[in-house]
């Protein structure tokens, strides 16, 4: 098993609250890893630490190591924007940029220095097709992205993230605001995308975890209680807490 992300002794404090407690875990490459656990257990914080979005909050103290490939991204001299670009981020709700559908997808490319209009147009089309949105929007590419339905917006956000050619996709409960059909569309897309990308997804929906996870990390109260291949964690959990969570004793 190839490891895409290796987390070593990760501790994170907000003010003096110990949010992530000594996390040691490996996330396999080209697999769909799902982080499950009750709300408030630190799932989202862990996800954001991978992208160093935790830098945004001055109250956060973080220690330990996060290796992406060979590089410890918490202690690197490389430009932070370069590191973030390796990871596409899909938030709980779609957050389209305040501009047209086309510009949303082209945004990352333009920032990365691509200006050639033909290339941009081709790339935008490619990624919109990649998320099965092209046919729905091809006639109104220059309309504001906010006019799309929520489900379409979330697929647009996925296309926008893919357009900067990341290796990893970070998704924070990406379907929690979506209707069942849009949810299915995203789940199916993820199942296809994992051939080329490492996907880390936070969810609190066990059904979703059962359906699409290859690898599962179960967190509780800021600790990783158990992690392993999905089959094993879901069907033969070793830890008592995992069993209780899977049986629905706590959420």
């Amino acid at each position: 098993m190839n490891t895409a992300i290796r987390i070593r002794n990760l501790n994170l404090y907000i003010h003096n609250h110990h949010i992530l407690k000594n996390i040691n875990v490996e996330i396999p490459a080209n697999k769909l890893t799902v982080i499950i656990g009750p709300s408030g257990c630190g799932k989202t914080t862990l996800l954001k630490a991978l992208n160093r979005l935790t830098d945004l909050s001055p109250d956060i103290d973080i220690s330990g190591q996060i290796f992406i490939g060979e590089e410890d991204i918490l202690h690197t001299n490389r430009d932070i924007t370069e590191i973030r670009k390796q990871m596409g981020l899909l938030a709980q709700r779609p957050f389209p940029l305040p501009m047209s559908i086309f510009k949303n997808v082209a945004f990352g490319l333009k920032i990365g220095g691509r200006r050639n209009k033909n290339i941009l147009a081709k790339r935008v089309e490619y990624y919109l097709k990649e998320v099965n949105l092209w046919d729905e929007v091809k006639d109104r590419l220059h309309q504001p992205a906010s006019r799309l339905s929520i489900g379409q917006q979330q697929r647009l956000c996925l296309a926008r993230g893919l357009a900067v050619d990341p290796k990893i996709i970070l998704a924070d409960e990406p379907t929690s605001a979506l209707d069942p059909i849009s949810t299915q569309a995203i789940e199916q897309k993820f199942a296809e995308l994992k051939k080329n990308y490492t996907i880390v997804m936070v969810t609190h929906i066990l059904r979703q975890a059962r359906q699409i996870a290859d690898y599962i990390i179960f967190m509780h109260m800021g600790e990783v209680v158990e992690h392993g291949p999905a089959e094993q964690v879901l069907n033969n959990p070793k830890e008592e807490k995992t069993k209780m969570y899977l049986q629905g004793v706590f959420y």
Partner: peptide, 13 residues
């Protein structure tokens, strides 16, 4: 929302 900043940063901005 702070998420708008987060997603924009994650696009390499």
């Amino acid at each position: 929302p702070i998420e708008l900043t987060e997603v924009t940063l994650s696009l390499g901005a």
